[in-house]
Amino acid sequence: MQAINGAFNFVFDILLLEFLGLPKFWGLAFLSILFGLVALLAFKKISNQKAIRAAKDRIWGHLMEIILYKDDVRVVATAQFKVMRYNLAYLGHNSIPMIALVIPFVFVVMNLDPRLRYSPIDPGQEAIVTATLRENVSFDGLDVALDAPDGVAVEAGPVRAADARTVDWRVRADDAGIYELSLRVNDATETKRLVVGESVKMLAPKREGGNPFLELANPGEPVLAGSSPFEKIAVNYARGQTIPVFGIDMHWVLVFLLVSLAFGFAIKGALGVEI
């Protein structure tokens, strides 16, 4: 699972144009356009294009019938019934490919969310690293340590809170970068990534232990093993899920949907796709 996550992270790093160091919006817009294009082509492939076309034609035809024979109650009533019938048929032809497209959409959202829901720590700003320990770890004489690489200062802590089963540190890095923190409890060691900088990066606000789905839903870092004394390791990244779009702050999912839909509708004619 870790290898799959790693591969997808690599691909998304490229698709979000992280290497260009652009503001969040442009990387997201590029990926949204790409998703719109791929989704459109996939829709064309897996949907019954002829049936959709036919359903739409029939709907239009019966609408015309309503206009032309508006004085004939019997014809209008029949036409209205048929419009409803072919509308249902139209929705039916669309629903299966749409449901199929939800799967890649959810996958994309799961990969984008850790990058866009949170912001990296600003250089020079403090970050709190919180380790939650499992029930079987005793806090009496608990030996804990956080080893930080060069460039990261451990300024305060550890604060061992037995009631909350947490240990906290305050760290700070003056320069942008991705730092690997090493946390030790008694003889067990785990790492946690600390991302400092301004550009979009895969962030993992927390590392948790758990099942493969959890690992898929948290693609930033590997899950913690069940035998680890650590239940969770978190960094308090600031929430930054809105993206400024021409002066208006919008949730990133809304930006993604609007851009991909707008692009899809704009080029569906050129690609000969019936929606």
């Binding site: 305060a156 802590g157 809170a161 947490t166 540190w169 305050r170 308090n236």
Partner: peptide, 18 residues
Amino acid sequence: DTDSASAKIIVGEEIVVV
């Protein structure tokens, strides 16, 4: 934490360690 002479303060969603 008396050993490390530090404290964690939680106000709503804000956490500070000093």
